[in-house]
């Protein structure tokens, strides 16, 4: 419940901070941090321009994408508070419901028959599939460590208490930040500020979306980013922390995360397309490292 509200709140300023940081670093003043929300509101008010080639898939594509992100938000807890739903295996559901959204976004891009959107759809599908294992191994490691099978249980019994686990915490944060940036179409895999269709991934898929649909996709992306932020923050909120402290930690962490993303993006160029799988697979490798770290923590090798 609380998590849902927090994600929505954080999503309003998250992207704004990222852009503000990027602007400041490059010596400009930049837009206000609520510019993202203003953009979305403006888009919601606009009319529709639909392609004559498009079918019902285009109509439902953006809607399903947005709905999938909102549904995914329902199962993520915040600190000691469970999400709307908490059941065994909810993280599997989380990953798969996000995949539903992706599927619809991809087919909606192919629906218009545009060469550019086909390209974007292709790349999105490609990178989406490569990132799956990383997430599952990561979550699997923690399920193993805590002997729990839901987000709530994992966060509840998760605690960092020795040197291996600090190392693990750092790795987890890194991997999740990377997954979040990938899923939301940011650097180094994709650059939303690029101005050439041929180099885009996420942006090029929505070339033919306008008004309401585009607003849905934009806001889904914002929500997704702060949702992943929440996943990260949860690792550092041990149960029993007073609520005000948890809220403070949450907002500070989101801001820090946004600033980090902004800084990363300012000093990094988008990598070449054919290097992307390497970057993504390195995430899988890191999660396997975490898996073995967990095995070490649990003293399983001493058999």
């Amino acid at each position: 419940m609380l998590s849902f509200v927090l994600v929505v709140l954080a999503s309003t300023f998250f992207i704004g901070i990222v852009y503000r940081v990027r602007a400041l670093v490059s010596g400009r003043k930049g837009p206000g941090i609520f510019q993202g929300v203003k953009d979305v509101v403006r888009l919601f008010k606009k009319g529709f321009v639909l392609s004559t080639t498009a079918s019902y898939i285009s109509e439902i594509g953006a809607v399903a994408y947005f709905a999938s992100v909102v549904t995914a938000m329902l199962v993520v807890p915040f600190g000691g508070n469970a999400g709307f739903f908490s059941f065994e295996g909810d993280f599997i559901f989380f990953a798969y419901i996000l995949a539903v959204g992706k599927f619809f976004l991809i087919v909606a891009a192919l629906d218009t028959g545009s060469p550019f959107e086909g390209m974007g759809a292709n790349r999105e599908a490609m990178y989406a599939l490569l990132v799956e294992p990383a997430f599952f191994i990561l979550i699997g490691s923690f399920a193993m460590l805590t002997r729990e099978f839901s987000f709530f249980g994992i966060y509840k019994y998760m605690h960092f208490d020795n040197s291996v686990s600090y190392f693990m915490g750092a790795l987890v944060t890194y991997v999740l930040v990377q997954i979040a940036m990938l899923e939301c179409g940011r650097m180094p895999v994709d650059d939303p500020k690029t101005h050439l269709e041929l180099t885009m991934i996420h942006e090029v898929m929505v070339l033919d979306k306008s008004g309401f649909d585009l607003a849905l996709i934009q806001s889904a992306t914002y929500l997704k980013f702060s949702l992943y932020g929440l996943l990260i923050v949860n690792f550092f909120l041990p149960p029993g922390t007073p609520l005000w402290l948890m809220l403070a930690v949450f907002f500070v962490a989101q801001v820090v995360l946004a600033v980090t993303v902004g800084l990363l993006e300012s000093f990094k160029a988008r990598s070449r397309m054919n290097r992307n799988p390497l970057i993504i697979f390195s995430l899988t490798t890191l999660s396997i490292l975490i898996f073995f770290a967990v095995l070490i923590i649990m003293n399983k090798f001493s058999l």
Binding site: K45, G47, V49, T53, S114, G211
Partner: peptide, 14 residues
Amino acid sequence: VMKRSGVKYGPTWG
């Protein structure tokens, strides 16, 4: 929203 703000049809953006 579609009913309120109207829909325009056009070719796919190329």
